Computed example of a mutant assay.
Amino acid sequence: MSDTAAMLRLELADKIGSVGWRKALDLVPRERFLGDAVYRPDKTRDDLWTPVRRADTTADEWLALAYTNETWVTQVDGVLAEDATGAVVGSPSSSSTVPRLVIRMLEAAEIDEGDKVLEIGTGTGYSTSLMCQRLGNNAVTSIEYDPMVAARARDAISDAGYAPMLVVGDGLCGYAERAPYDRLIATCSVRTIPRAWPEQVRAGGTITTPMSGWMSEGSFVHLTVAGGGTASGRFLRDSLYFMTARPHLPPPRPPLVRGVGDPRETHVDPSILRGTGLWVAQLAAPDAQISWGENATFLVDASAGSRAEVQSDSAGGWTVRQHGPVRLWDGIEKAIDIWQGAGQPHQSGFGLTVTPERQWVWLGDPDGPSWDLPA
C-alpha cells in the first residue's frame, strides 16, 4: 500500500473521530472497494450519472477521490460504473456510502469485540471489511441481493485480505444457517422490519436499520430483541438516507389528475409535510406516494385507487379534494394534529415495537398514540 494511501486513511480517521473504529479506518483501504470506476452526478440533472474511470485518473487523483468523505455511486439501475459506455440515466442501485455515515451506523449498532454480526447489504464490501478488521472474519456474515454487486464485493474483500461469510440472496430473509446473531445491521432501508430478523437475533441482541416509506422520508431505528420474534426500541436522532431494499420499493405511480374528488376545507397547511412532518404523514398513509405541483400537494395510493389533492384557496386557507375508499388526508390530518399537540417532536421522540403479528410506531412511549406499519 502506498504512503499516500496510508496518509489519507489517517486523515480520514482523524476527521471521523471514532475511538472504537479508528484502527479499522487506518487499515482498511477504501480505494479497493471503488473498483475500476464510480459515477459522478450531473450538476444539472438528478438522474444523469457519468462514469469516472480509474484508468483516466492519476494514482493520486484516484486516492483523493476514494478518501473524500462522500458517497460514490457504483451502480445505476443495475449498470456497474465500470461497464457503462457513457453517461447513464437512472437511479443509484449500489454505492460506497460516505465513511462518516458508515461509522455512525456501526457505532449506533453498538458493535464491539466478541459480537457476531449479520450485515444486510454487502454493497461494495467496505463496511464488511471494517467489521472483519475489528471483529475477525468468522464473526461477520454479509448478504447481498444483487449477484453482480456481490461478485464485485467478494473480489474487493478478498483483495483487501479479509474472508467473512458472504452470501448471495435476499437479505430480508436473513441467514438462518449462522443464527443467532448478537447484532444485525442493515445498509439498505426497509419499509417494515422483516419477520426473519428478530427471529435470528438472540434475546438482548440488537437490530439497527434505516427505514423509509413510500413518501421517501427516512428514519433510523435501533431495536432490542426480546425473543419470540419480538423487538422494541426508539428512532435515533440521525437523519440517514440509504437505498431502499428492492422488494420494499413503491409501485409505479399513476398519472396525476387534478380536480378529482369531494372538496372540503382543511386546517392543516400542507407545507408542514417536510422532515418529521412528512414522516408523520407517511405513518398515517403508508401506501400513499406524494408529489408537489404548482400551488398543490398530491397524494396517490395506487393499490387502493385513492387520491387527495390539497390546494390553497383565495381566503388564505386550504381545500382538500379526496377520492377513493381510503380518505388519505383524513388520516394525515389526525396524525399531524397529534404530533403538533405533542410539541412536534423529532423522530427520536417516537419508538417502534415489532411482534410476529404486527408492527407499530408509537409516540412518547409504547402506550402512546400509535400507527401500524403495513403488513
Score class of each variant (00 low, 15 high):
residue 93 S to L: 08
residue 93 S to P: 09
residue 94 S to P: 03
residue 97 T to N: 08
residue 98 V to S: 08
residue 102 V to Y: 03
residue 102 V to W: 00
residue 102 V to Q: 13
residue 107 E to F: 09
residue 107 E to W: 11
residue 107 E to G: 10
residue 108 A to K: 11
residue 109 A to W: 00
residue 111 I to K: 00
residue 111 I to G: 01
residue 112 D to S: 15
residue 115 D to M: 14
residue 115 D to Y: 05
residue 115 D to R: 10
residue 116 K to S: 10
residue 118 L to I: 07
residue 119 E to C: 09
residue 120 I to V: 15
residue 121 G to H: 03
residue 124 T to M: 12
residue 125 G to E: 03
residue 126 Y to R: 05
residue 126 Y to Q: 06
residue 126 Y to V: 06
residue 130 L to H: 07
residue 131 M to W: 07
residue 131 M to Q: 08
residue 132 C to Y: 05
residue 135 L to E: 00
residue 135 L to R: 02
residue 136 G to R: 07
residue 137 N to W: 09
residue 138 N to V: 14
residue 139 A to N: 06
residue 141 T to N: 09
residue 141 T to F: 05
residue 141 T to H: 02
residue 142 S to F: 08
residue 146 D to Y: 04
residue 146 D to E: 12
residue 149 V to E: 02
residue 149 V to I: 14
residue 150 A to C: 10
residue 151 A to K: 10
residue 154 R to Y: 04
residue 158 S to C: 09
residue 158 S to K: 11
residue 159 D to I: 12
residue 164 P to G: 07
residue 165 M to N: 07
residue 168 V to F: 00
residue 169 G to M: 11
residue 170 D to C: 11
residue 174 G to V: 08
residue 174 G to A: 09
residue 175 Y to L: 08
residue 176 A to V: 15
residue 177 E to K: 15
residue 178 R to E: 14
residue 178 R to L: 14
residue 180 P to A: 13
residue 181 Y to C: 01
residue 182 D to I: 01
residue 183 R to W: 01
residue 186 A to F: 06
residue 187 T to G: 02
residue 187 T to N: 03
residue 188 C to Y: 04
residue 188 C to N: 08
residue 189 S to M: 04
residue 190 V to I: 14
residue 191 R to I: 01
residue 191 R to E: 07
residue 193 I to D: 02
residue 193 I to A: 04
residue 193 I to G: 03
residue 197 W to A: 01
residue 199 E to N: 14
residue 201 V to M: 04
residue 203 A to E: 12
residue 205 G to R: 03
residue 205 G to L: 02
residue 205 G to T: 04
residue 209 T to D: 08
residue 211 M to G: 03
residue 212 S to W: 00
residue 213 G to A: 11
residue 213 G to H: 08
residue 213 G to D: 15
residue 214 W to N: 11
residue 216 S to C: 13
residue 216 S to N: 13
residue 216 S to H: 13
residue 218 G to M: 08
residue 219 S to A: 15
residue 220 F to V: 12
residue 224 T to N: 11
residue 226 A to G: 13
residue 228 G to Y: 12
residue 228 G to F: 09
residue 229 G to M: 12
